[in-house]
Simulated assay, not measured.
Amino acid sequence: MTLSDPVSKTGIETVLSVEGLRLDLLGSPGQPGLVDDVSFEVRAGETVALIGESGCGKSITALAILGLLPAVVAVSAGTVLIAGEKTTGAKARRLAALRGSSVGTVFQDPMSSLNPTMTIGAQIAESRQLHLKESRKVATEKAIELLELVGIPNPRSRAAAYPFELSGGMQQRALIAAAVACEPQLLIADEPTTALDVTVQAEILELLKSIQERNGMGVLLVTHDLGVVAGVADRVVVMYAGETVEQAQTEDLFASPAHPYTRALLSSVPQTGKRLKPLPIVPGRVPPAGAFPQGCRFQDRCSYMVPSLCLDGTIPVAQVHPHHESRCLRIDEVVRSERTP
């Protein structure tokens, strides 16, 4: 189930559609439904945040969208469309053509993403040569322009530098320049600021926003940082143990979470002006692959769990109100308790 056509900032087309995606972990111990019944959309000009604790399935979902799953994980159901083109089941050559042209990617560790044997300029130019068929000279000049666009000083000299000669912040900026070199319609940013200090983090997020406004691309932001989500996301998709458990506009989700997991996440964020008050925590941990429980996957950590309701069967996604969904059988109680002083 997906949200019912939320209106984006631009009001134009969907650049990413994930519908009923299911991934199976093969081998032993295996896990059917490692990711199960995942559905969401990203529209042109909007930022959708995919959030949850480590181990909830965010990054493996992003890899499935890109067609970069490891050999031990397979798509067993569902569809992914990028810019209207179905990519689930597509040939490797076609997927390679889409990566860089229709969809760009920024990962959290630029040093593992950038090629240490190539100059920064050559790595950015390579994408334009491959996808746009530009000459090396033209692509190199464009790479210098892109380095200037992302705020790297002395872009011409930096284009001739190798990754190890740049600071972490400049490496991430260079990686962003490479990701948007061909003006993709979709950008997937997987924890793009985790390894950076707070000041550089803010600069990188502002940079992504300015490029988005310039190019009108959709952004899927994979993160666990709720502060980042509140500042940049238009909509939020919450994942837990491989399932999407809540989706809503950002303001609605922060104001009135409708799933116990979302509520627990928001409650555990430190609040200003509350000295000497113990910080709430989410008890327990995300169940590992191979040990997902029957029924609600959050049952062992949930204060709203009722054995007769939550321990068996499939928990469906329910509509809270237009553009707000929750995978919970006790939505009314969760929302009511959130409003209780």
Rank of each mutant, 00 (worst) to 15 (best):
321 H>C: 07
48 V>W: 00
11 G>N: 13
126 E>D: 13
286 V>W: 11
106 V>G: 04
157 S>K: 14
192 P>W: 06
221 L>D: 01
175 L>M: 15
29 P>K: 01
182 C>H: 02
53 E>T: 12
177 A>Y: 04
82 I>A: 09
299 Q>R: 15
261 Y>M: 09
198 V>Q: 04
325 E>S: 13
43 R>V: 00
285 R>Y: 12
283 P>R: 10
11 G>K: 09
280 P>I: 11
315 I>Y: 03
83 A>W: 00
172 Q>W: 09
20 G>Y: 00
181 A>P: 12
30 G>C: 06
183 E>S: 15
273 G>A: 02
315 I>Q: 11
133 K>F: 05
256 S>A: 14
176 I>S: 02
91 K>Y: 03
167 S>K: 15
99 R>D: 06
161 A>W: 00
215 N>H: 12
202 A>W: 04
112 S>P: 01
239 M>E: 02
176 I>F: 04
46 E>R: 00
94 R>E: 13
13 E>R: 15
58 K>I: 10
165 E>D: 07
197 D>W: 10
312 D>E: 14
110 P>Y: 06
329 L>F: 14
104 G>H: 06
44 A>H: 03
88 T>D: 06
283 P>F: 07
202 A>N: 01
301 R>S: 13
178 A>N: 14
88 T>W: 03
200 V>H: 08
121 G>N: 08
253 L>H: 10
330 R>M: 14
153 P>K: 12
298 F>K: 10
189 A>L: 06
51 I>G: 03
207 L>H: 10
232 V>T: 11
255 A>V: 05
332 D>W: 04
191 E>L: 02
147 L>W: 05
283 P>K: 05
134 E>N: 00
234 D>L: 03
341 P>F: 00
232 V>S: 06
138 V>Q: 14
107 F>R: 01
302 C>V: 08
198 V>C: 03
221 L>I: 01
326 S>A: 15
2 T>M: 09
46 E>T: 10
209 K>M: 14
292 F>Y: 15
40 F>S: 03
207 L>A: 10
36 D>E: 14
174 A>F: 08
316 P>K: 09
19 E>F: 02
295 G>P: 14
150 V>Q: 09
4 S>M: 12
118 M>C: 08
133 K>R: 15
215 N>S: 05
315 I>M: 12
307 P>R: 10
181 A>C: 07
257 P>I: 09
237 V>N: 00
91 K>R: 15
6 P>K: 04
297 R>W: 06
219 V>Q: 07
308 S>K: 15
327 R>Q: 07
131 H>D: 10
104 G>N: 02
175 L>F: 02
149 L>W: 09
155 P>Q: 06
268 S>R: 05
169 G>T: 08
58 K>E: 11
333 E>K: 13
301 R>V: 08
58 K>S: 10
177 A>P: 00
84 G>V: 09
328 C>T: 03
